[in-house]
Design a binder for these strands. Structure first.
Lengths: 161, 161
DNA sequence: TTATCTGCTTGCGGTTTGCAATCAGTTATC
DNA sequence: GATAACTGATTGCAAACCGCAAGCAGATAA
């Protein structure tokens, strides 16, 4: 009963993994908003995702290897984490965000993160991915001087309120 | 009666524009396969798109400003062309393709284009976008030495058969 | 005239979507 | 210990969407 890909094309593979109305938005909130729990994702959603859709997408994303779920008993806060595969979506998010900035109307508050990511380029993306590996994969933290990318993103967001 | 965006987020804007199972694949075939006509897109589709879905997506993409349709009378071959907005999806395709290569099983034949695009980096993407502007937007052709990116993509594809 | 090609459209049954209400288990408050 | 709030969901339902197959009118070719 395993689902087979419609084709062996890498673009199609990406579309099948997260090419729907909600998957990328859920991943965006986990990645950039650091929302790790069901209720956080539900209440914090800018687009107003419904609870059943969120539940379904979380399951699918776990199944697709884009999220892991810390398995706790029922009734307890389960935490969702990014995987190496979803951390490597940072450049995809950066390019999608830049395209959205250029070709669609956006609001100032929600624009700043995409602007920062686009301006920073691949070096910043790599730095951010390294931070995400520390946060989500439990890799040991490294020394840094100055604020992290996550902190800079948060600061830019706050400044634009 | 215009549709309003769920949020002012650039990522959401991109998802709303082409975040479904088929839109990106249609754009991919127009862009990389140079398929400009309905029947070409229908018959050449690796994933086997249905004719009603293709008709719907073509309409939506035109409405969204990602394709233009050369308006001819009924019964005559109408040609679809990329717009500046969809030409600027080249980096998005490159990143999506690279992600698919790394994290999903793909077939050799369909992999080569993504590999070439990933290896070439931003310089190659810019070159390819310039070519697409000549093909789809009617910009004047410029002098070049050596094969075009489109030719190199086609050659790589043929070599992998 | 006959056949084929053009870009679609229509019917239909099955699936998915999104909203609202609800659920059982756990924790915090009184 | 009772109550309430919070946990991650599940369920019912109507509407929208999906993909398959067939059909359509106009244009072109033999």
């Amino acid at each position: 009963m395993g689902e087979s890909a419609r084709s062996g094309c890498p673009i199609n593979a990406a579309v099948e993994a997260f090419g729907d109305s909600w998957s990328l938005l859920v991943l965006r909130d986990v990645m950039f908003g650091d929302r790790r729990h069901f209720r956080e994702l539900l209440a914090g959603s800018e687009e107003g995702i419904a609870s059943n859709i969120l539940a379904d997408r979380l399951k699918r994303l776990v199944k697709a290897g884009l999220l892991t779920r810390e398995d706790v008993g029922p009734g307890r806060r389960a935490a969702y984490s990014l995987t190496e595969a979803s951390i490597q979506l940072v450049p995809v998010f950066a390019q999608l965000g830049e395209w959205g900035l250029r070709h669609r109307p956006t609001t100032r508050r929600l624009r700043v993160r995409a602007e920062l990511l686009a301006a920073g380029g691949p070096e910043l993306w790599d730095e951010f991915m390294a931070e995400l590996r520390i946060i989500h994969l439990g890799e040991p933290a490294t020394e840094r001087d100055g604020p992290s990318v996550m902190e800079r993103l948060a600061a830019a967001y706050t400044a634009a309120l």
